[in-house]
């Protein structure tokens, strides 16, 4: 991320005028930027601060005024099985889908990188955006139709190869697997597009030179292509993590976190705490904890993988 900005820095410096800018000129960039900053402060930072404050209060919607309770919401939330279960369900979803998405995404990106059939390649490039664009709530409905235990096309197809009647939506493990499959279907194309974009940054002379050195594929991939892929892979990790943690619509529209709480991801749990349990204080504490967790994860990825890139 930093490199492109540095390049533009040089560009800006080039065009700086030698004479000292006037006070008015000092102010102009801010005049351009200010409206967006103010808007984001109002709809982003201010609400976060407000939630942070609420998280230290005992507040049940529709009942008495909020009262300060220091850390008791955090203690309650961290000792409450339901929330921790939802967090571990979400982290498990991440742990299952991320490696699969990276591997499949890399595979698709390499297919796109091979110039065998231009026509097929263009079609694939266009088609890849369809899962990303499709409304998650709609995807959830479609999952219900396709994975229906009795009448679904998936079980029909499985039956033809001898696997009978998987209870996709009723069994807890199968329901969780269904969510994993839908998540992988929707977001693997994103990994493919990002990695494919990174592959396109490999100078073709370097690739050709490597081909002269060795015809074996693996060393060429590891030593020549991979170093160019780290920024893209890091981006995939960071953004897929955000997509999993923010996941709500698709899972909610499959069966609202059910059966039981088998697919109750963290967003669904916080929504339940806040808007059906009306425990605003606890929900605020849960949100803040998730915010901290997502920032820590993002920083870890950048530390782990950006160092390799440097």
């Amino acid at each position: 991320m930093a490199t492109s900005l540095d390049a533009s820095e040089a560009k800006v410096a080039e065009h700086k005028r030698p004479d000292r800018p006037t006070a008015m000129e000092h102010a102009t960039p801010w005049l351009f930027v200010l409206p967006s900053v103010l808007l984001l402060l109002a709809v982003g930072l201010y609400p976060i601060g407000y939630t942070f404050v609420i998280s230290f209060h005992n507040w049940t919607l529709g009942q008495a005024e909020p009262s300060f309770t220091a850390l008791s919401n955090y203690v309650e939330v961290l000792t409450d099985g339901a929330f921790l279960d939802a967090v571990s369900r979400t982290m498990l979803l991440l742990a299952i889908t991320l490696p699969i998405q990276l591997a499949l995404g890399l595979g698709i990106a390499l297919l796109l990188h091979t110039h065998f059939n231009k026509w097929l390649r263009t079609i694939l490039q266009v088609v890849l955006v369809i899962p990303i664009a499709i409304t998650p709530a709609v995807l959830g409905l479609l999952v219900q139709v396709m994975f229906d235990n009795q009448f679904g096309i998936i079980n029909h197809a499985l039956a033809s190869i001898g696997i009978q009647g998987v209870n996709w939506l009723g069994d807890t493990t199968a329901a969780y697997t269904t969510v994993c499959i839908a998540q992988i279907w929707q977001w693997t194309p994103f990994a493919a597009l990002v990695i494919s974009a990174s592959l396109a940054t490999v100078p073709s002379e370097i690739e050709e030179a490597a081909l002269l050195e060795t015809s074996r594929w693996w060393p060429r991939f590891r030593r020549v292509l991979l170093p160019y892929l780290w920024p893209g892979i890091t981006a995939v990790l960071v953004f897929q993590t955000a997509f999993v943690i923010k996941q709500f619509g698709m899972v909610y529209s499959i069966q609202k976190g059910g059966p039981g709480s088998a697919t109750q991801l963290v967003m669904l749990e916080i929504e339940r705490t806040a808007f059906r349990g009306f425990d605003i204080g606890a929900a605020a504490a849960q949100s803040i904890l998730m915010l901290v967790l997502s920032i820590l994860l993002a920083q870890t990825y950048i530390k782990l993988f950006y160092r390799e890139a440097a």
Partner: peptide
């Protein structure tokens, strides 16, 4: 500021949803 914008993608929606509600 440029970097600050991207951090909004990481936001868990409920964090701002509660105050908005």
């Amino acid at each position: 500021i440029w970097f600050w914008y991207v951090t909004h993608w990481m936001l868990v929606p409920v964090v701002i949803l509660i105050p908005f509600y």
